[in-house]
């Protein structure tokens, strides 16, 4: 499921932003460049509003900011890595290093299964370490494909 949505060009090997807002903007601009997002400001405002109502950060350096709304044309998944970490206000106060960014239509039925699958995958320390030490998008896709098998 993850490997079907995540392509090598949807992986940012090193995020430039060093704050939650900057990283969200970076994902939106990147997604816009891929033709996945058209209304950048509206997307940013809505996803930030959701973040303020409860962080999308999980424990152990993972964050999955996500938005389901009618102005998203089709489901997409981006992955960004920040080796230095970004403060996503996580419950364990660890900076987020693996950041998955999801957009989907309001009634997309794959939205919850995708969030669930990513969360479970990232609960394994070995997978987190492998993803963080990967050298290229293809390495990352290989790690995820192997795990999903």
């Amino acid at each position: 499921m993850i490997k079907e949505l995540l392509k090598s060009d949807s992986i940012i090997m090193e995020l430039k932003g060093n704050s939650k807002e900057a990283v969200l903007r970076e994902f939106i601009e990147y997604g816009s460049g891929l033709g996945l997002i058209s209304n950048n400001d509206e997307f940013f405002n809505k996803i930030l509003e959701l973040e303020n109502l409860g962080s999308s950060a999980l424990e152990k350096g993972i964050a999955i900011p996500h938005l389901r709304d009618n102005f998203v044309s089709e489901m997409f998944l981006l992955l960004g890595i920040s080796h230095g970490g970004v403060d996503f206000d996580s419950i364990d106060s660890q900076p987020s290093k693996l950041i998955f960014f999801i957009g989907a239509k309001k009634n997309d039925k794959m939205y919850l299964p995708l969030l669930s699958r990513i969360s479970r995958m990232c609960s394994y320390g070995e997978i987190r370490d492998d993803l963080l030490s990967a050298d290229s998008p293809d390495d990352i896709l290989g790690i995820i494909s192997e795990w999903e098998v």
Binding site: L112, P113, L115, S116, S119, R120
Partner: peptide, 12 residues
């Protein structure tokens, strides 16, 4: 665990 996460995201 998959079902558990789904319910968590739903309730979130």
């Amino acid at each position: 665990e998959d079902d558990g996460w789904k319910s968590l995201y739903f309730f979130q």
